[in-house]
Write a protein that binds this DNA or RNA. Structure first.
Lengths: 386, 386
DNA sequence: TGTATTGCCGAAACCGGTTTCGGAAACAAC
DNA sequence: GTTGTTTCCGAAACCGGTTTCGGCAATACA
C-alpha cells in the first residue's frame, strides 16, 4: 500500500518512434488536421459532424489502430463498458462444468461490442450484497448478470434500489404476481422440458411417476415441478403428494429422496429429476435396491452434465446450452445499459432432449416393483436405509 | 454505436442531499480543510505528509466511506488495479469443474487488495494473442494469469515483448534450459505426486507399472512422466517404452491408451494416469476386458475431480487445491505488478493423496493377467478393439 | 543574527478522453 | 443587400483523481 514517491520515473522514450505505443486521440486529430473534440464527436456519432468527415475520421482511426481507453472515457461518461457477474462460491452444488462455456458465451458477446467481463465471487448472501455494492460504488461495471435467481432474491431489490442495470439468468418471484415485474431475463424453460419428460414416460406406458425436485429457494424449482404437474394433468394422472420430493441439490440428496420414493407402498416406476445431479443420486439409490435403471425404473434428468453420458446406462436428459445463455445474457444486458426497456429484454429458450438408456417402458407395475424392493430388502439384511 | 446527442441529461439533483451518492476526493478534502492534493498524497503514503495529518485523513476517509474510482486513478497512473485471465474456450478437456473454485481464490485475493478480476476467452491460439493484445492495449489489466502453460508458450513471448507483467499457472520450457527464465509462477508438483503414486504401487508389490500421459504440448505432461520414471528408478525397475503412453486428454483417449497397454504381451498390473479423466478412461477399457479395478488392475489418477469419488471402485487420486492456486497466483501477480522481482515470485505446492479403492496389491502377475485378457478376448468374439 | 536546510502543504498542471458553447461560413428568406 | 438559419467545427471546460513544483514556516547551522 505504501507507495514509493522517491522513485523517479523519467523513462527515456525511444528516440526513433515519436509517439508512444498507443495512438491517442490528440495524435489522431493532429494526423487528420482536426481538433480532438471534432474527432471525438465524429467517433461517437454526433449529428453535428458532416458525414464526409465522420467517414474520414473513422477510416484513419481504424488505419492508425486507434482505440480509446475505456477508463479515460469512463471518467467523463461514467460508463466503463464492462459487465460483471458475481458468483456464489460456497454452494453445495457449485462444481459446474459449464461455467467455462457460459463465460465463453458472455465474453464473446461482450467483446463483440468492445466490452469486457469482470467476475467476482461471494461467500454468503450478505457478502454477495457487499460485493455488489462495492462494484457499483467503484463503478467497476455498467450492469450485472445475476445467475441462479431465487424466488425472493435480495440482489434484485438491492440493485433495483441502486438503479443499476441487471439481468437475470432465470426468472423470479414465483407465486408473487404482485411483485414488481420490470426485470429483464434470459431463461431456459425447465418447465417445458420436465413436462416433455413426463409426456415421454406416459407414452412409454408409465402411470406412476415420481419427481425429485431441487431447492425451493430457487425459482426454477417451482417451475420444473409445475412442468411435472402439468404433464400428469395432461395425461389425466392423479397427483400423489408422496410422489413429489423436493430439496435435492446434491447427488447424495438425490439418493436420499429416491430411497424415500422407492420405499413407498406404491413406488414410482419412473422418476423425473429436476437436475442431473439428483438423477445420479437416483442411480446410486436404485443400485442399493438391486434395481436396474432403464428396466426396473426409468430415470430422467435435466442439465446435460458430461457425467450423464458416462454412467451406465446413459442418462436420458435435457441439454442446456450454457454458452448460448451467456451470450444472450450479455447482449441483452448491454442493450439494456444503452437504454432499452428491461421488460422488453426477455428470452425463453428450450433445453434439448438427449435420449439415452435410462428410460423405457415399465417392466413392472408399481405393485410388482414394491414386492421386488421388499424382497430385496429382506434378502439383504432387511435394512431400511431411510 | 450511434449515440443520441440530442438527449439532454440535466438531472435535477435531490435538493436535500447536497453531494451525490459517492464521496469524492474534493468533498473529503473540503471536509478536512485540506487541499485535494494533500489528501491524495496522504492516502497514497507520500513521505512529505506529516504522520498526524496522514492519520487524520485516513480516519475520516474511512468514516466518510471514500473510495477512489480506479478508472479515475488509472488515467494518470496507468494502473487499473485489475488482473486478467484469458481462458481457451475450445479445449477438448475444457469442462473443468474447478474453474469456479479457482476464480473464487483469485477473486478473494484480488479483493483483499482492492483489485478486480477480468476474464476473457479465446477460441484459438491466434485469437488468444489477439485478445491479450487488445487487453493490454486498452489497459484492461495490469497483469495476467496464464493458465495451462505449454512447453513452448506463445503467450509468454508475446507478453514478455510487451513488457506486461504475467504469472504462469504451471511451469514452462521443459527441456530448454537455455530459454530465458525470468518468469514467476505457481504450480502443483505433479511430478512428486506421480512419483508417490509409483512408490505406492511398488510398495503394494507391483513390478510392471504402466503410465498414461497427457498431451506433450503441455509442460506438466513431461514433468509427470518424469515423476513416473523417477519412481521406477528409485525402485530399480526397468523402464519399458511400451508401458509409456502419451497424449490422452479425454476419457476416450485414456481408454484407447489403456487398451494398448492391456494388449501388450506383458501388460501392466498397475496403471498410473496423468489425469483423472484418463483414469476414468482406464475404467472403461478395463471393463471391456472384464478386469476388475483394484484387484486385477490397479489404477491411480491425478486432479481429484468430483467424479473420481463416485465411480466404482472410488479412484485413488491426488487432489489439487484449485482455490488456493487461484489465491496464490493472484497475490503473487499483484506483488509483481508492484515491482517485485518475477524470478523471486515462485511457489511449488503439493497435491494430496486421496486413498480409495482403485489400487492395491497385485492379484495376478503380468503373465497371468495377459492370459486372462487373452482368454476373455477369445470368449467374447475374440475381438481386438484396437 | 543571518542563512541554509528541512518539513509540510497548496496551486496548478496533467492524464485522455467527452461535452458544452460559441462562432464562422454557407445558405435561405425577405 | 440585409437578415435569420443551418451546418459544421474549434476552443475550452470538465470528469476525478495524481504528480510536479514552489513557497512558507520552523528548525539547524554558522
Amino acid at each position: 500500500m505504501t507507495a514509493n514517491p522517491s522513485l523517479q520515473k523519467r523513462e527515456t522514450q525511444s528516440p526513433i518512434l515519436p509517439a508512444s505505443g498507443r495512438v491517442k486521440l490528440d495524435e489522431l486529430a493532429d494526423h487528420l488536421g482536426l481538433s480532438k473534440s471534432t474527432v471525438s464527436r465524429a467517433l461517437n456519432g454526433y449529428s453535428d459532424i458532416s458525414e464526409t468527415t465522420r467517414k474520414r475520421v473513422e477510416v484513419t482511426a481504424r488505419k492508425m489502430g486507434y482505440r480509446p481507453l475505456s477508463h479515460a472515457q469512463a471518467i467523463r461518461t461514467g460508463k466503463v463498458r464492462a459487465i460483471a457477474m458475481v458468483i456464489n462460491s460456497e454452494e453445495p452444488d457449485r462444481h459446474n462444468p459449464f461455467l467455462q462455456d457460459f463465460l465463453a458465451g458472455a465474453c464473446e458477446a461482450a467483446s463483440a461490442s468492445d466490452w469486457t467481463l469482470a467476475i467476482s465471487t461471494a461467500k454468503s448472501e450478505q457478502d454477495m450484497l457487499d460485493v455488489l455494492g462495492r462494484l457499483v460504488e467503484e463503478r467497476k461495471a455498467d450492469g450485472f448478470i445475476l445467475p441462479r435467481t431465487e424466488v425472493d432474491d435480495a440482489r434484485i431489490n438491492y440493485l433495483r434500489e441502486l438503479k443499476v442495470p441487471f439481468i437475470l439468468y432465470g426468472r423470479t418471484g414465483y407465486g408473487h404476481p404482485d411483485r414488481p415485474d420490470d426485470t429483464s431475463w434470459f431463461d431456459i424453460s425447465g418447465e417445458t422440458a420436465i413436462r416433455k419428460a413426463v409426456d415421454r414416460l406416459v407414452e412409454f406406458g408409465h402411470t406412476c411417476i415420481g419427481y425429485v425436485g431441487s431447492d425451493p429457494k430457487f425459482n426454477y424449482s417451482h417451475l420444473r415441478r409445475d412442468g411435472y404437474l402439468e404433464g400428469l394433468k395432461a395425461a389425466s394422472l392423479q397427483v400423489h403428494p408422496d410422489l413429489i420430493r423436493e430439496g435435492a441439490r446434491t447427488r447424495e440428496e438425490g439418493a436420499v429422496e429416491t430411497r424415500a420414493l422407492l420405499q413407498l407402498d406404491a413406488p414410482p416406476t419412473a422418476i423425473v429429476c429436476a437436475t442431473d445431479l439428483a438423477a445420479l443420486g437416483c442411480y446410486a439409490a436404485c443400485a442399493e435396491f438391486g434395481l436396474v435403471i432403464g428396466h426396473d425404473v426409468s430415470v430422467l434428468g435435466y442439465d446435460g452434465i458430461p457425467e450423464s453420458q458416462y454412467v451406465s446406462p446413459g442418462l436420458t436428459t435435457f441439454n442446456v446450452d450454457s454458452k448460448r445463455a451467456g451470450e444472450r445474457l450479455a447482449t441483452l444486458l448491454i442493450r439494456q445499459t444503452r437504454g432499452e426497456e428491461p421488460a422488453k429484454l426477455r428470452e425463453l429458450s428450450d433445453a434439448v432432449l438427449i435420449e439415452r438408456g435410462s428410460d423405457g417402458p415399465p417392466r413392472l407395475t408399481s405393485a410388482a416393483l414394491a414386492r421386488q424392493i421388499k424382497s430385496f430388502n429382506n434378502h439383504n439384511r432387511g435394512g431400511n436405509r431411510l
